[in-house]
Write a protein that binds this DNA or RNA. Structure first.
Length: 504
RNA sequence: GCGGGAAUAGCUCAGUGGUAGAGCGCAACCUUGCCAAGGUUGAUGUCGCGGGUUCGAAUCCCGUUUCCCGCUCCA
């Protein structure tokens, strides 16, 4: 158990990182000069490099192999896609909250929590409040008359009908006490929590022109399954990888980049024979956590969180999250799911187009199973950033270092003339020009060299090259390593090879 | 969506009704001799935003936005 002091200290780590992120140009708040936009963030000069490097490493990991193809699907898709996927239906349920005890209820299941006696009392109270001859009362009476249900079920039926009526449900909720805490008049207005952003195709804002910003990139892969398979002549098992933005109209945003309304996903959907699902699921599960470790993320701060069978999503047979221990607690950075043939079957059903795969060996047609690896690029960014952040005491001063893996570091090498004279700047500029085509470099000749080192530490630059007096004599420079602060002398001619080797 | 806290220079913060401040950072020039510590000069604020009270508001009141924490939610 963590103490309050420990929690407080941990909380400040996020604050420090947010502060550093802004100061050094990793992350800015969106539309800051207008007061910001809730849950949206912009990646600055260093941030965009880090994010690109993360995505680049993922892309190479996924597609530099024989059995995975790349894809970049449109963000806007046919609205039927989201009906087939279940996103439209599953997330349009109106909800209410109890202001007293903070319980949340789905309006369509609220009836189950209210007993007969209470229902009767509530309906009567509603009718009384409306008054005789009122339209609403007549409507309620017609619910009774038209209900096919018998006996007690009839009351349930009517109660549910009232809840489904937009006007009557609001009125009835005023007479219904919270099933949990029993308080009266403590419900909020019913609200729909559809997580998808809507917009319109074409200039007319009408229902039939409504499309959604995708809430996940996966569906773009699923609907292109046969296109990709045919074009690439792949055979099962094979995967499709995609990186792209997705949008969810979250109720609450939270924890810096962790829960945002616009975010980026790195998804790879692996299509397999149904009987091989377990094997591939296990393989990908291990491969994905190893990826984070190989890029320097602290192994002790990574774990699996397997979803128990009774809490699986409607499409999943088996699921796990890769979680990172953020300062605010464990949080998912990637999900690995066995999605079965749910998605392709649904699209087959809704589109009327066969999504079956023909196996030449067994001469069988079937809808493949899908093993999904779905990583959050934005969340990974935050995890890598937080994980890299460190402070240490050096001669009584605090040294702030971002210990990025060299592959992820926004700037790979800083080139520093020790002093701005004796021809050192000229040599340093020459080195800069030679290295720049190969990697992101930064030239700095301002102020004392120690200060320049520290500035690079804060940006996470793994190597600093310093041109000094000895350079003038033997054409070597010092290569200063970020984490150890140790230096070695390397001949200028060997620099490129040396650095590339160091960055592996 | 509910409750609590916060918002003043790029960052960290002081400023309880009377001229907008400090440290660090940043920029220019000088000086340099390997880990943020020399010198000189300089820039930067609608005190989150909008109303109100007041002769006068960063300060008091109301609203609002954003961030953080807790609850809730997270297919």
């Amino acid at each position: 158990m963590r103490s309050k002091i420990a929690q407080k200290k941990e909380a400040t780590v996020v604050e420090k990182v947010v502060s550093l992120a802004k100061r050094r140009g990793f992350v800015f708040q969106s539309s800051e000069i207008y007061g910001g936009l809730n849950g949206c963030w912009d990646y600055g000069p260093l941030g965009v490099e880090l994010l690109r490097n993360i995505k680049e490493e993922w892309w190479k990991f996924m597609t530099f192999r024989e059995d995975i193809e790349g894809l970049d699907a449109s963000i806007l898709m046919h609205p039927r896609v989201w009906q087939a996927s279940g996103h439209v239906d599953n997330f349009s349920d109106p909800m209410i909250d109890c202001k007293q005890c903070k319980s949340r209820y789905r309006l369509d299941t609220l009836s189950d929590l209210v007993n007969q006696k209470r229902k009767k009392k509530t309906i009567n109270a509603l009718k009384e409040a409306l008054g005789d001859g009122n339209e609403g009362v007549e409507k309620i009476n017609s619910f009774f008359v038209n209900s096919d249900a018998e006996g007690e079920a009839k009351l349930d039926d009517v109660f549910e009908h009232i809840l489904e009526d937009e006007v009557l449900s609001r009125l009835m909720l005023k007479h219904l006490n919270c099933p949990n805490c029993g308080n009266a008049e403590s419900f909020t207005e019913p609200r729909s929590f559809n997580l998808m952003f809507k917009t319109f195709v074409g200039p007319v804002e009408s229902t039939e022109n409504t499309v959604f910003l995708r809430p996940e990139t996966a569906q773009g892969i699923f609907v292109n399954f046969l296109n990709v398979q045919g074009a690439s002549r792949q055979k099962l098992p094979f995967g499709i990888a995609q990186i792209g933005k997705a949008f969810r109209n979250e109720i609450n945003t939270k924890n810096f980049l962790f829960r945002t309304r616009e975010f980026e996903q790195m998804e790879m959907q692996y299509f397999v024979k149904p009987e091989d699902d377990k094997k591939h699921y296990d393989t990908w599960k291990e491969a994905r956590i190893q990826w984070f470790k190989d890029l320097g993320m602290t192994a002790e701060k990574l774990r699996f969180h397997d979803h128990p069978a009774d809490k699986l999503a409607h499409y999943a047979k088996e699921a796990t999250d890769i979680e990172y221990q953020f300062p605010f607690g464990w949080g998912e950075i990637e999900g690995i799911h066995n999605r079965t043939n749910f998605d392709l079957s649904k699209h087959q059903e809704f589109s009327g187009k066969s999504q079956q795969y023909y196996d030449d060996e067994t001469k069988e047609k079937f809808v493949p199973f899908i093993i999904e690896t779905s990583a959050g690029a934005s969340r990974s960014f935050m995890a890598f950033l937080v994980d890299a952040y460190s402070e240490e005491e050096v001669k009584g001063e605090t040294r702030v270092v971002l210990r990025f893996h060299p592959k992820l570091a926004p700037i790979k090498v800083a080139i520093l003339p020790l002093v701005n004279k004796d021809g050192m700047p000229e040599i340093a500029r020459k080195i800069e020009a030679d290295l720049r085509p190969h990697m992101k470099v930064f030239y700095d000749d301002k102020g004392a060299v120690g200060r320049r080192y520290r500035r690079q530490d804060e940006a996470g630059t793994p190597f600093c090259l310093t041109v000094d007096t000895q350079t003038l004599e033997d054409n070597t420079v010092t290569v200063r390593e970020r984490d150890s602060m140790e230096q070695e002398r390397i001949a200028i001619d060997d620099l490129l090879v040396h650095l590339i080797r160091k960055m592996k």
